[in-house]
Amino acid sequence: MVQLQIKKENVYVPDLAKLIKKRKMTEWETLFTFEFVEGRMKDLFTYKPGQFVQLSMFGIGEAPFSISSSPTKRGYLELGIRKTGDVTNKIHELEVGDVVGIRGPYGNGFPTESLKGRDILFVAGGIGLVPLRSLINYVIDNRDDFGEVTIFYGTRSPDLLLFKDELAAWEALDDIDLHVTVDAGDDDWKGNVGVVTTLFKKKKFKTENLSAVVCGPPIVYKFVVKELLDIGVGKDQILLSLERKMKCGVGKCAHCQIGHKLTCIDGPVFTLFQVEQMQEAI
């Protein structure tokens, strides 16, 4: 996919974007759909699954967010955002029609080209599904390009499941094998109970052509990586999307530096091989 670069005079200046849809997913997370105010941006702004943007709430601050929509859907941008601080609290107060600033896309994104032809196991813990959803929908929209697709998704409880409608839609697809689990169920929960790694018992993988794509809170990586190595996935075929506090997004402020890598431009997607070279990465 050819990436159109928006040549900007000043990389730090955001473009204006309007909130066009707001869909509450859980008590804490909402899916926000934005479109750029300036018409030409709709064509110019292209991105890869796994990339992120810097979103400005003017006067409050700026924060990085993974893009949750798939680039196969043009003209808008979906960001799944959890309330955790000043910027995200304010974003949750936005009403349709309100304007924010967005700049990007930044980061390397997932290597969609080299994943072609491979079987893919997605492992998402909690809010980690937000960036993975972009790639999952990209794969679904280019289904013939990829091999077997499995999705493992775990959250703490059923009320924290994200993208519930979409989970149902993925479940209904014959060529997607979706497994969902919760750490603790409730009275209505009929599905799996246990942390996301327990799903590895559900399925035997042939690993010679398998790539794993993992995203979740820091604790998820350690345990999931262990499972993946146990079943024989190569270190260069385990892809982790890391979270750091990018302030600039373009490799200058150094907030997201891990070892000798910058999460914002070298990542946020790293192979396990790379992660092992970077101290304090996970």
């Binding site: 003017f58 006067g59 601050g61 302030k247 200058k252 402020c253 907030h255």
Partner: peptide, 17 residues
């Protein structure tokens, strides 16, 4: 060293920053 932090400073009128 070049690390920097970024903060938005509101004007007291709360109409500009």
């Amino acid at each position: 060293c070049y690390c920097y932090d970024v903060v938005d400073d509101l004007d007291l009128s709360l109409t500009s920053a």
